[in-house]
Amino acid sequence: MTEIHEAPFGEHHGQAVRLFTLTNGQGMRLAVTNYGCIITQLWVPDRQGVPGDVVLGFDTLAEYQAGHPFFGAIAGRCANRIGGGRFRLAGRTHTLACNETATGQHLHGGVCGFDKRLWQAEPDGDGVLFYYRAADGEEGYPGNLEVIHRISLREDNVLAFDYQATCDQPTPVNLTNHSYYNLSAQAEDIRRHWLQIDADFYTPVEEQTMLPTGEIRAVADSPVDFRQPRPLAEVMTPLPQQGIDLNFVLRGGEGALHPAATLYHPASGREMRVTTNQPGVQCYNAFKLSNKRWIGKGQRHYAAFAGLCLETQAFPDSLHQPHFPGIVLQPGERYRHHTEHTFSTRAED
């Protein structure tokens, strides 16, 4: 049975911040704080049974408060990019912060999105239940939004994310967790990891804005064909800056739980299988981390390719692409998002 330990983790605007550590009977350990629902640690055994921390992050709350590239946090009210920081909904134009300097777009909920908010939290069985009420007009979004987010660690080595939300006005909602995974436990970067994505199509982007062009393009004969497992180095080497930051159109669509991706590190034997009820997964190989010097846990330098994000969500800039799956939540409806990360090991190849 999963055990949960709760401890102080500093203060945010005079309010106590808590850190919850969840441990199952299989040697996995998860640490998550109610500041931004951030996963600060995730310890997973390798094929020899030796646990290693497989997510990027910091040792202290102050380092998260100083700003970071969404290490382990929830992204919302609307994850990913919204073109020009503007959208029209229910007869009104709404203006959001264009907080991604490099592209000039709105990103992951704005200047003070859900990742920088203090959530109410309490242990709940094998997980932690988080609650936040986003006020009408917060970061420019319309309507009051009630969000319930549950993060759990099961005995079958499943890390599960559950999101629910209701609103009192039509509003866009697209939530995800933004953890950077490195199954080597930072012994090396991700280039020798193998990745498979359950997608036959992806949404190409305009180079400067990183916004989707609107095309839904086949991965076949493209440089980002992950239909079969491939070493990341093989895919990355010919790409500009070796960068990957793309949304893949999952075969399962939206609704029922379906496969999204599998990440495998041969040297350690660790494998992570991702399933979700979301229509897409944003794959980001952290090629931009070297744009700034990040010193993480244990004074480790996080350079480009230190981790890989697999963010299950709706498609980016869906508000401006009518043929993409919709993200507008209506009063009386309930947003439901469920994603599972299943960890295991393989015998030595």
Rank of each mutant, 00 (worst) to 15 (best):
T21K: 06
A79F: 01
V328F: 08
E333M: 08
H13L: 15
G125I: 11
V54A: 10
T23K: 15
P69M: 13
A97D: 13
Q186M: 15
P240N: 05
P240R: 01
R86H: 11
T101P: 08
E3P: 04
R92Y: 06
C98D: 03
G85I: 05
P223D: 10
N182I: 00
M1A: 12
Q48N: 13
R77L: 06
R92W: 08
R270P: 09
I148F: 01
I38K: 06
T33C: 14
F248W: 03
H341F: 14
D245E: 14
D245F: 07
R150Y: 01
C167P: 03
F9T: 09
G280A: 15
A62P: 04
T33H: 07
I38F: 03
T95C: 08
N24E: 04
F226Q: 03
G72S: 07
Y180Q: 06
L118C: 13
T213P: 01
N174M: 13
A314I: 00
A314T: 07
E138A: 12
Y132T: 10
R192C: 12
D124Y: 09
N277I: 12
I244V: 15
E271T: 13
D156F: 02
D225F: 01
F87R: 04
A218V: 01
L107F: 01
D162M: 04
A31P: 01
H108F: 02
M236S: 14
T342R: 15
G36F: 10
P266M: 04
Q169S: 10
Y264F: 15
